[in-house]
Design a protein around this nucleic acid. Structure first.
Length: 254
DNA sequence: ATGGCCAATTTTATTGGA
């Protein structure tokens, strides 16, 4: 079973890339983030023609997440279902082949100390509390977490020290989520010492200079970690004209 | 060639991304 996550940075601007990647990589599940469109604007026909079902949770202009699957999904949940209102479409949970899969797009946080940053940390606290109450079973949290966990995940840790995406409160939030739910960073488990970025800035030759960050992750429960066969980042998908600024990240389970 | 921001909308600027 191959599960992938990709912040596509506007799905309508990249339909051909999306369909091409589905055909080449052939994941069983693809979690998408930053659709930047409503559900009725999602390129459903093109994705279905490539052999995938579409479970989408979009909104106008910003955010938006989806689960594309070869097989059926059940039990869809949209956003953190804890009774608090949330106007931003950032999370979609569904069960696929007995595995609960979450496609999530964590808030960016803008600048440390800003209102957006507080929203980000609050969103992480809500996510952790909510998932602690979930029914037990195999779980994959996949998406753009907007946090680089370790020095190895940042092209210049000194430059990012204390800055958004790498500040201590953000890294603590991700660490707390991972530990309290007993999750494992799947890519890092199989590649413990290798810099593997998933995002590169469009500006200042970020990709050619490999000035990247690893902020897209697949966190899995221990039962799934034991089935890990392979994992990686598809840097090819970041090349060429009109790429997303993120590359797909994937895992293969036995 | 992996190349000097990009996408959507509020559109000829502004907002958010990270």
């Amino acid at each position: 079973m191959k599960i992938a996550t990709w912040n596509i940075n506007s799905v309508r601007a990249r339909v051909d890339r999306l369909v091409g990647w589905l055909k080449t990589a052939s994941p069983d599940v693809l979690c998408l983030q930053e659709l930047k469109c409503t559900d009725d604007q999602f390129p459903r026909a093109e994705v279905e023609a490539a052999g995938y079902r579409c479970c989408t949770f979009g909104q106008k202009t910003y955010n938006g997440v989806a689960l594309l699957t070869k097989g059926p999904v059940t039990g869809e949940v949209r956003n953190i279902d804890d009774g608090e209102a949330d106007e931003q479409a950032r999370l979609l949970l569904a069960t696929v082949d007995g595995v609960q899969v979450v496609s999530l797009y964590a808030p960016n946080g803008q600048e440390v100390g800003s209102e957006a940053h507080e929203y980000k940390l609050g969103w992480y606290r809500r996510l952790e509390r909510w998932l602690q109450k979930r029914p037990p079973g195999p779980l994959v949290l996949a998406g753009d977490f907007n946090v680089a966990p370790e020095d190895l995940d940042v092209w210049d840790p000194r430059l990012f020290q204390g800055r958004t995406l790498f500040s201590e409160p953000e890294r603590n939030a991700l660490r707390s989520l991972t530990r309290s739910l007993g999750l494992v960073d799947a890519v890092r488990t199989l590649h413990p010492a290798e810099p593997m970025f998933s995002w590169w800035d469009y500006r200042m030759l970020g990709f050619p200079k490999n000035h990247g960050l690893r902020i897209d992750h697949l966190l899995v429960t221990a039962d799934l970690a034991a089935r890990l066969k392979a994992a990686g980042v598809d840097r090819e998908a970041r090349k060429g004209k009109q790429p997303s600024d993120h590359a797909p990240v994937w895992i293969e389970l036995a």
